[in-house]
Design a protein around this nucleic acid. Structure first.
Length: 222
DNA sequence: TTTCCGATGTACT
DNA sequence: GTACATCGGAAAA
């Protein structure tokens, strides 16, 4: 049996979710939509299918571990902001800041299921061969959506922002479905260790929608 | 198929 | 100087 969590796609209010600690917010962000409006007015976006939680002083793998450095400053700000950083000097990675202002916490978006402006994503990621390569990784999805350093700190909850986190337009996030006691459909969430880190590797703070084809990589079986 | 490694901007030792 | 929340091309198997 994989995982022990479920989420109800699209039934969570983004404002409520990001108000809580990153570890609690992370699985609840699954199924929400992240979309980006470019200068030309085109919208690209997708539903969140994979995330990782990072906290602050108690998390050696977090950029906020050593306090509010210039890079990690946004992580200490109000929730619902976008924290963008450069990875390995080449790629951009996008996080949703969580928890009350003054505390550090963020959820790294690791994979999206493309929903809007897929043709535009292909033009930004010509190397991709199949649709499941478009947004199946933190650097890939930033490239596909056009997220970069200029977006660091934008308010994801403001409808006027160029980058927004919001409830789905329609179409559920896809994955392994479950039926709860009340007869509602829920999506099964799998967990595992965070990827690409060397500290606090034992914490299962990676979350994904089970069996979704857009995951950055498989979750270890358990 | 899997593994290895280069590219290259920041932050920190 | 070294490490790093990555990716993709080349080499090995």
């Amino acid at each position: 049996m994989l995982g022990c969590l479920t989420v109800v796609a699209g039934q969570n209010d983004p404002t409520d979710i990001v108000a809580g600690p990153a570890l609690e917010a992370a699985p609840r962000l699954l199924g929400l939509w992240l979309d980006v409006r470019s200068g030309s007015g085109r919208i690209v976006g997708g539903s969140v299918v994979e995330v990782e939680a990072y906290s602050g002083a108690d998390d050696p793998a977090s950029h906020a571990y050593r306090g509010p450095t210039p890079r990690a400053e946004v992580m200490f700000g109000p929730p619902g902001r976008l924290y963008v950083y450069r990875s390995y000097g080449i790629h951009w990675c996008a996080n949703v800041v969580c928890g009350p202002e003054g505390t550090a916490g963020a959820v790294l978006i690791r994979a999206l299921e493309p929903r809007l402006g897929v043709e535009h994503m292909w033009s930004r990621r010509p190397k991709a061969r199949v649709e499941t390569d478009l947004c199946s990784g933190p650097g890939k999805l930033c490239a596909a959506l056009g997220i970069g350093g200029d977006h660091n700190g934008v308010d994801l909850l403001d409808l006027e922002s160029p980058v927004r986190l919001r409830s789905p337009d329609g179409g559920e996030a896809s994955g392994a479905e479950m039926v709860d006691d009340a007869g509602g459909t829920r999506l099964e969430v799998v967990t595992g260790p965070r990827i690409g880190i060397s500290r606090a590797v034992d914490r299962p703070w990676r979350f994904g929608l089970a069996e979704n084809p857009h995951l950055s990589r498989p979750f270890p079986a358990r």
